[in-house]
Each structure stands twice: as C-alpha cells, then as structure tokens.
Design a protein around this nucleic acid. Sequence first.
DNA 1: CCAGAATGGATAGTCAAGCTCTCCGTTATG
DNA 2: CATAACGGAGAGCTTGACTATCCATTCTGG
Lengths: 214, 214
Amino acid sequence: MRMAELSDRSGVPVATVKYYLREGLLPPGERTSPNQARYSAAHVQRLRLIKALTDVGGLPLASVGAVLAAIDGDETPHSTMGVVQEELAGVAPKVSEEAAAWASGLLEEVVRENGWKWHEPGGAAMDNLVAALATAKELGQDKLTERLGEYARLAVRVAEVDVGVVAGLASVDKIIEAGVVATVLGDRIFAGLRHLAQEQVSREVLGGGASPKR
Amino acid sequence: MRMAELSDRSGVPVATVKYYLREGLLPPGERTSPNQARYSAAHVQRLRLIKALTDVGGLPLASVGAVLAAIDGDETPHSTMGVVQEELAGVAPKVSEEAAAWASGLLEEVVRENGWKWHEPGGAAMDNLVAALATAKELGQDKLTERLGEYARLAVRVAEVDVGVVAGLASVDKIIEAGVVATVLGDRIFAGLRHLAQEQVSREVLGGGASPKR
DNA sequence: CCAGAATGGATAGTCAAGCTCTCCGTTATG
DNA sequence: CATAACGGAGAGCTTGACTATCCATTCTGG
C-alpha cells in the first residue's frame, strides 16, 4: 500500500506519518523507484503501537523511539523489558536528600521482606518509586507509606498475573511485544480498575455521600 | 514570610511562584500594604502539593488548578475525589467504535461479577479504562484482556488498603488532602512496586537472562 | 534617614514537543 | 497526457510551562 492507504488504515494523518518516518519511529517503506515506496501491514501495526504508547501509555515520542529500537534489536526479552521500564519511568523528579534516604531505607526493608534481588541494582523504576515515597513523606502522608508492605505484597500478585500473560507465547518476538504492551497498557488498566474499585469501597466503608460530579 | 523565603522553603523559583499566583494556583498572600504581601506556612504546603501533583503525578497545571479548587471548595470528600479522578484520567484517547463497544461489554461483565454500582455511571476514569482495553484488543493482546477479572479482584484489594489509608483521619480537610495524595502518588507507587515485582517474578518464572540494561 | 536590595505586578520572551503546512520535482493513472 | 498522488525537506504553528525584564514601591541595615 502507499501513503494514503497507510494513513487511512492506521488513522494517523499523512503529515504525521511523514514526520514519524523522518524521526525514525517508522521504518522506511520498500522502494519501488527512486522516490516512491510501498508500505506493508507491519507498518500499520507499528503505527498502532506508536499510538498506543503515546496516547494510552503517555510516553513521549523519544521514549517510544527507544522502546521500538529495543523491540527491533535482538536483545533478550528481559533486557527489552528493562528498556521499557526505564522509558516508562522517565526522569525521576528530584527530592530532598534526606527524604530520598529515608525512602530508600523504607524500600530496602520491603525488598528484604520479599526476598527480592538484583544483579545490577537501581534503575529508573526504583528511582521513581523512591521519589514518590519521599514526596509522600514530605507531604506528611505517613499513613500511605506505612502500608507499603501491603501494597508490595499485592504488587507481587499483580506481577504474577502479568508474567502469566506473556509466558507461554510462541515466539520471542510475540513475548517481547506482549510484554511491552502488557507493561504500558497494564499500568493504565490497573490504575483504572483501582479507581473504580476505590469508589465502590469508599462508598461501602465511608458510607454514601454524593457520587462524584462529572 | 515574603517571596524569597517562600521560594526558598518550597524549592520553587521566585518567577515560578509569581506565575502560579497569576494563574490562581496559589492564593494571594495577605496584604500588609498596597503592594506588599506576606505568605504563610500554608503557602509552602500548597507549593509542595503543586510540585507533587505535577512532578510525581504528571498532571498538567490546569488539572492541578481544578484539583486545588475542589480541595478548597466545600464539597464532600467523595465528590472531591471524583474531581481528582477526572483530572487524573485526563481526556481518554479515541478508539474505534467497535473496539470501544467490545471493551465496554467486557468491563460490564467485571462490574457485574463484583457487584459494583453507580449512581451516575461513566466518568473519565471509566472512559480511560475502556480506551485502554480497546487498544489492547486492537493490538491483538487478548491474553491481557482475558485476565481482566483477576486484575479487578486485586484492584479491589488495593482499593481496600487505599481507603484504609484515609479512613480514620481526624478532619474532613485531612481526609480530602490525604485522599488526593493517596490517589495521585498511590498510582505511581503501586506502578513502581509492580515493575520491581515484575522483574523478580519474571526471573523466577521465565528463568534468568541478563538483567535490564541501565 | 537614606542608599541599595527586595517586592509585587505586568508584559514579553524562551524553549521543547508534537505536529501541520507548503513546496517541489517525480511518478503513477484513467 | 492531464491530473492526482507521492516522497522528501523545510518552515511554521500551538500548547504548556516557565523565565526574564521592567518598573514603581517598600524594606532594611549602617
């Protein structure tokens, strides 16, 4: 297919497709003459993935580029997921030295309790978590951080489901793409479910009150 | 205190504080003369909250403004949380008509299984969830959506902890602010824990492989 | 008490992200 | 063969979130 059809099938405007080509997010089509190209179903799928990562996942295009490069590279699923997590986490906001130290200590405890281990510790995901905990502390929300252990135990349960989603897929490529999608969309889906559940539980526990306004 | 100290204690540059004042995110200080003002500890706290919502929560300033207005208004905790969820969800990405219909059906099932009810159904949180599910469908990630029920059950468990965090606080104001923080930071914290857990579980289940690259 | 720093207020400028528009010379197509 | 579509490149646009510059007051330390 050519530009117009690619644009049509993916729902992405022609000008935007050209922009993605320029930025290297979409691989060039197969040349049929010095200045004509043909695109495949893979291009449509790729555009859909880009839309999912940006619109639903909220990733900046630069991060999408990094994730796509990781998918295309022949890394292991594990290391590809590492890239996804780094990009999904983004740059952690800075917090005060002492709050960060306190948060690291708290997290350390949880890590120990759960018997987690790292070959190369750290990573943006952890930096972000530390920043979020430190921020909660700075805002004086101690109740929230006191429950970290409970959240961690539930997070393990969720992660088990996550891994179940990707395990048992046929090809490595499938596993990688499913892993990326499960991680990025999974966060949104779980957050959405949590919000719905919060409303239900809070009505049960705290009692009525008006339903939230639209 | 005056500008310089407010800026210093909150870590927000003077120019930015002035900008927030202009935008109405920060209430004006108490006048001491026609063109001088004094700020209080409440202003410092407010600035910290703004930073938390933008930096950690990733909310645009306009949404922060809406959330702050809801906090300041004398709505019930329940309706304030509704505003937070609306703003946190943002504008749901558009998806195809049929994918959305399918996702709504799937979600309907989960809602029924869990016995959830709404006075005024819908809301941005649900729109977002539907969009995320529809996107997963469009990407062909059926495994993910098949597990929705499991995720929902775990989400309820998480929500129970969430509500436990805010329940039993002394004043209504405390409950509201804690609720906002727990919702916004809670999403980040849980996502972080989930990512850490994913790495642990995937190594156990899928076996080694290199650790993700930094 | 007074020089110099700080303040509040307003306006304009900056920067990055993510497109979108316009050309242009070439290529397909009815 | 006329006209529509294409690819490629460049400039332009919009939004969001600041940042910088002025300026007329108001503080403040020696």
